[in-house]
Amino acid sequence: MAVTQDLVPAVVSGVGGLATALAGAPWWTTVLCLGLTLIVTSLQLVFPQESRDRLAWWKDRREYLQGRRAARRRRDP
């Protein structure tokens, strides 16, 4: 079994340091940094993390895109 690193606890614990570093910063900077943190953690939760699952996801994605291209070629003369 492969050991995978989980980004979520690291990012969540880093938010406290981020908030301390941004104390006194403009509100939009704080919102932007926290939004980017949320996006990074969400990507890890959405995409599969195990190698077999990740490989299957990319194969399915490639088949889907090839199907779309083939449909577009049939539709456009």
Rank of each mutant, 00 (worst) to 15 (best):
Y64K: 14
W27I: 15
L34V: 06
V12L: 06
R62W: 09
R69P: 05
T37Y: 06
D53K: 11
R62D: 09
C33T: 03
W28V: 10
R54K: 12
A70Q: 10
A56F: 09
R73L: 14
I39F: 08
P9W: 01
D60R: 14
T41E: 01
P48S: 02
A19L: 11
V15C: 02
W28K: 13
D60Q: 13
E63C: 13
V46I: 14
T41H: 00
A19I: 08
A19F: 09
Q5F: 01
R52T: 12
L65C: 07
W28R: 10
V15P: 00
A10M: 05
T37M: 08
T20S: 09
L18N: 02
G35F: 10
E63D: 15
R75D: 12
W58V: 12
M1W: 12
E63N: 15
V40G: 00
W28N: 05
V31L: 05
T4K: 03
R54V: 06
V3G: 02
R62T: 13
V31A: 11
V3N: 03
V11T: 00
G17H: 01
A71E: 13
S42F: 13
V11W: 00
P26E: 06
D60A: 12
A71R: 15
L43F: 08
T30G: 02
P26T: 07
S51I: 09
S42I: 15
V11Y: 00
V3T: 11
V46T: 10
G67L: 08
V46E: 01
R75C: 09
S13I: 08
L34G: 02
L22C: 03
Q44N: 05
V12P: 00
A56N: 03
G24I: 06
G14P: 00
G24M: 04
A2M: 11
D6V: 01
V31P: 00
D60I: 12
S13Q: 09
V40F: 00
G16Y: 06
P48G: 01
T30L: 06
T20P: 01
C33P: 01
A56K: 14
E50D: 08
T4V: 11
R74K: 11
Q5I: 04
T37D: 06
S13D: 07
L38F: 09
Y64V: 08
L55K: 13
L55A: 12
S51N: 07
V31E: 03
V31W: 03
D6T: 02
A25H: 06
T20E: 08
V12C: 04
R74C: 05
V40C: 04
W28Q: 12
R61S: 08
V46W: 09
C33E: 04
A2F: 07
A70G: 05
V15A: 04
P26F: 03
P48I: 00
Q5W: 01
T20D: 11
A10V: 05
G24C: 04
Q49N: 14
R52E: 08
V3M: 04
D60W: 14
A2K: 04
V46M: 07
V46N: 03
Y64T: 07
R75Y: 12
R61F: 14
G14N: 01
K59D: 11
A71D: 12
W57M: 11
Q49H: 10
A25F: 06
Q44W: 00
L36G: 10
Q66K: 14
A56R: 13
L55Y: 10
L34N: 01
G17F: 01
Q5Y: 05
S42G: 11
